[in-house]
Design a protein around this nucleic acid. Sequence first.
DNA 1: ATCTTTAACGTAAACGTTTACGTTAAATAG
DNA 2: CTATTTAACGTAAACGTTTACGTTAAAGAT
Lengths: 334, 334
Amino acid sequence: MAITIKDVAKKANVSIATVSRIINNKPGYSKETEIKVLEVIKELGYSPNSIARGLISKRTHTIGVLVPKLSSMLTNEIIRGIENITHQYGSSVIVCHTESNGQKTMQYLQLLHEKQVDGIIFASTSLTEEYYQFIENKGIPIVLLSTKSDQFPVPYVKVDDEVAAYTATEYLIKKGHRTIGMLSGNRDDRIAGKPRVDGFIKALKNYQLSVNEDHIVSFHGFSFHDGVNCFQQLIHQIPDVTAVFAASDEMALGMISAAYEMGIKVPEQISVIGYDNLSIAEMSIPPLTSVAQPLCEMGEAAAEMVFEVIENNQKVNSQICAHHIVERKSVRSL
Amino acid sequence: MAITIKDVAKKANVSIATVSRIINNKPGYSKETEIKVLEVIKELGYSPNSIARGLISKRTHTIGVLVPKLSSMLTNEIIRGIENITHQYGSSVIVCHTESNGQKTMQYLQLLHEKQVDGIIFASTSLTEEYYQFIENKGIPIVLLSTKSDQFPVPYVKVDDEVAAYTATEYLIKKGHRTIGMLSGNRDDRIAGKPRVDGFIKALKNYQLSVNEDHIVSFHGFSFHDGVNCFQQLIHQIPDVTAVFAASDEMALGMISAAYEMGIKVPEQISVIGYDNLSIAEMSIPPLTSVAQPLCEMGEAAAEMVFEVIENNQKVNSQICAHHIVERKSVRSL
DNA sequence: ATCTTTAACGTAAACGTTTACGTTAAATAG
DNA sequence: CTATTTAACGTAAACGTTTACGTTAAAGAT
């Protein structure tokens, strides 16, 4: 059925070893047999079976990416970056949407191991002891993306969320705002929750502005609907708020919609800065000012890192990526 | 290093054949050796190497998905559907972003073949002769998603874009609109371009409304920016337009933004219906009425179909999926 | 008591490669 | 002209499985 190296060898009147040497250009054959064999290969349309190759080389040229339930735009950017580099290295990626489900995550880890992936990129999820032990035990190279571990020595690439939140809040302060609220999403989230709240509080305290629990409203998630709900609560708790920092662009959009419904003008009456700089940020009315993570570049960096440890088998340093604020029109100066 | 079936066999004092039989539960062993072996497996943390398995079974339990450069939200939904089913079948998916680049597409096809994927889902791209010949030649099961081929007998799942466009236009007409424009994106696009224009024209003609080239403005793509550009041109060509059909939600959002800039109220002064029903449709101001494709379900259907042909090795029927209009607030009745 | 069946294994080939090692003949050295 | 090197191969083992086939001993049939 499928054409194997044997077929090529037979038709070219050489041994399979010679064919192998030629397609891998290792020394050991004459120019004329080379062209002969290459001719046969073209003629038969032969291409090597990477499964068989993988069995002996112990490299599958495949890496696994685990992503939780995130905004599709976020994951897409990250994966695009990863795929860019992966493709450059002649490898491909198996994407696993864990849906933030621990059981599913373990299933996928098991599957990736059985498929003998060369490495794993673990995105935006806390690395539990169970995950770590498994991966460590199997000896699979791994790098964390948009998350990090305090307990385990695993390299990561992420932005400093606390600092980014601080910057965003400071931006509002420097625009003259004094009563600032935050839509924090899920505060228990160890990545997008707590650090951003901490940065927010730190900024306000540093500028001697008042901040208490009324200024921060949280909910289950970071979605559009969470944004409208949280904003309704916020405006009720501190009616004189003039600016808000939303922990995600989707929440920011939710807030803008809610404000619109309530007849509150953005940015005339209330300003808002988002987080993520998704493509929708520029599509909103008004266009949304947002703190941007270099998602695609981060994906690329993470991929570079796994390949670094795969190919050179050496430890690699973590990376803190720079964030920046993309100014659009949702914040006005007082 | 890694634990193989041999290690298990040795430690359990049985042959590798017996271990193999047990993990695949084929008959030929006693209850007691079974528990013994299972014990050893647990103790060593053994799990079978699917590469070795694949070599002999000719199944890799992997399918490849080729997607072009699309709105991230579109691809995400599609892939989510595909992954749902794939995971159910104990398989995984290799996602290949072709960036709508023919050369890259061929590279990926080659790669997928070398990796011996069990099947391929080919999304939203015209199946060229080159692609088809390759896949046909290698004998890889394939199904088309959101596209179809007139020349080649390849099963597909898609919505009927022309009918959907007709429905959308008819919707506007039934709301009382008489001067209707279209933002068509790239008219040469065989999937999202021509059929939607055709449906648009057909609806207008059917209702004896005027339609000529001025009513349709096209551009390179289907993006937000294309939407603003096209709308500016449209309003210039037919200033008395009261409703527009946009070939994508992103274009519709672009149009809304452009209208906002020009001081034209949506839907008070001009109505708009989009296409795709992305998550952003409900986030816009006003929330966007849009024609919805059941993207996730389509992904699932396509996946079911490949597995059907993979496992039962039989021909499978194409599927036309139902679209529907999601009414929100961007269209008003006249 | 002998023959046949069958349960419970083990042996070895096969899957499609890569690669260490062996072999041959020609080329080079002396 | 003989000895040594080397280019150009071929042979066969190995990677980790599955599976067809062979073997053994116990159970059942006669």
